[in-house]
């Protein structure tokens, strides 16, 4: 996993605040272990590796379900594998699990306003755009606007039925 992250460093750190903290593989391993401990103590969060034809392609995960059953999904993908629907399908799978199996009511995705490939994921999955958080994220010493998207359980069920 480290190889893919390190190779994609320049574009990943443009949008994701945690990338700059990972300078070496050891930093990343330590970061992963902290996240695992948090998940073990059941904050409910989970992370998955995305494999494409057996190769590590990226990752997708979700945070702690907040009160009222709201949960946020995050993802990244190797630059050379973008444009094939890999993340769209992966996120769809995760939403199936969150809504059908875990009974969550609301899924949130936030994406940098300027990151069009990332925004395309919730848009293609039929999420509703709710608004813009001005200066909502801080990456590389700059504040950026985030677009907020949401999907509600009944909307996803309807979508699944029509698919």
């Amino acid at each position: 996993m480290w190889k893919a992250l390190d190779a994609g460093r320049d574009y990943i750190r443009k949008y994701l605040p945690w990338m700059s903290a990972y300078k070496t593989e050891a930093d990343h391993t330590a970061g992963l272990n902290t996240r695992r401990n948090e998940a073990d103590n059941f904050d409910g969060s989970r992370g998955y590796i995305i494999e494409y034809n057996g190769e590590l392609a990226g990752a997708v995960g979700f945070g702690t379900p907040k009160r009222d059953n709201d949960i946020e999904i995050g993802y990244w993908l190797r630059l050379d594998l973008q444009g094939r629907g890999i993340v769209t399908r992966s996120v769809g799978k995760i939403i199936d699990m969150l809504i059908h199996e875990m009974g969550l009511h609301r899924i949130t995705i936030r994406a940098d306003t300027s990151n069009l490939p990332s925004r395309g994921i919730p848009e293609r999955l039929g999420f509703k755009h709710e608004g813009t958080m001005h200066d909502g994220g801080y990456v590389n010493n700059e504040y950026m606007d985030l677009e907020i998207y949401s999907m509600l359980d009944h909307e996803w069920l309807k979508r699944s039925k029509n698919a």
């Binding site: 009511h105 949130t108 509703k128 709710e130 608004g131 949401s150």
Partner: peptide, 20 residues
């Protein structure tokens, strides 16, 4: 107002749309 976070809170069993 930046967004309406649809059905993002439940109080006394009532689902609320939250203006942000």
């Amino acid at each position: 107002r930046e967004a309406i976070r649809r059905q993002s809170e439940i109080k006394k069993g009532v689902v609320l749309d939250m203006a942000s």
